[in-house]
Amino acid sequence: MHRFALHRVWDTRGEAEKMTALLTPRNVLLAVLLAFLALLPVYSTLTGNYFLMSLFTRILILAMAAVSLNLIMGFGGMVSFGHAAYLGIGGYAVGILAKEGINSAFVQWPVALLASGLFALGVGALCLRTRGVYFIMITLAFAQMVYYVAIGLDRYGGDDGLTIHKRSQFFDSVNLSNRAFFYYLCFALLLLAVYVVWRLVNSRFGMVIQGARSNERRMRAIGFPVFRYKLVCFVISGVMCGLAGILLANHTDFISPALMFWTRSGDLMVMAVLGGMGTVFGPVIGSIAFLLLEEGLSQFTEFQGIILGPMLLAVALYARGGIDGILMGLRRG
């Protein structure tokens, strides 16, 4: 399988061959991309271009959400059309606690992750009993439910949203309000998320999840109680997206129901599909491409969809593996 090619090479070839085998256009591009992301705050600090750093902080956070969605959608075949709900739940947990005077990250973050996990457990327990379109519709329905609950929270801003006056507090030495520090925190957590997903999908657990996507009936026939594995996967994904929600609330210092409007769930799906669902890095690439395009196109037109839509269509029709799939198809030299 393609996505494990890098891994296999590591086992079977000599050192020199390993190095050349790793030098595929895709891996070189990934390395350049990571180096760019790692050095971006340096550039921003030197030039004073904080807009760029802020934009990319947002990209990294939404990339994490897309990575979490990809775990269930790309590898598990569970097409969740309500993933923005976890961004909202993570964000609102931070915002509500902040409003109530609890700023400690040691309280905020576990509460936010727990709430995301519990919500995923409830939604998963119901929607995983359905298939196809029903699954998609039920996940969407639950996300909309949370959206309207948030609108009804008058104490926390209702429709208008709520400003967070103080970001999550860790120790005194850790200051999330420092833009470069916060950027690197998001970057590190994104890389961690990608690594975790990579380990997961290649583990025994991941084999079950991928097997269930491929042929659930056969999975049961060979003795797997598929439901419980899918449910755990769904919860892991929800918690990971909740973490992105925590970061997003801290990044914008603001929460509102718009955080989890259904189009946002659609955006996350687009990022995963555009980048390539079959690989762990695909959604990261997809998020960068999508959000940069969106940002770039907004300079020229408010109807970005006119350009983004056909692009997505092209990917769906001609490049099933997304951008990462195209890159992996490229041969060296």
């Binding site: 380990r199 583990s203 025994r204 991941g206 084999m207 079950v208 797997f224 594995y229 755990v232």
Partner: peptide, 8 residues
């Protein structure tokens, strides 16, 4: 199969 880390 709740083994999440080792390469299967």
């Amino acid at each position: 199969s709740f083994r999440f880390w080792q390469d299967a």
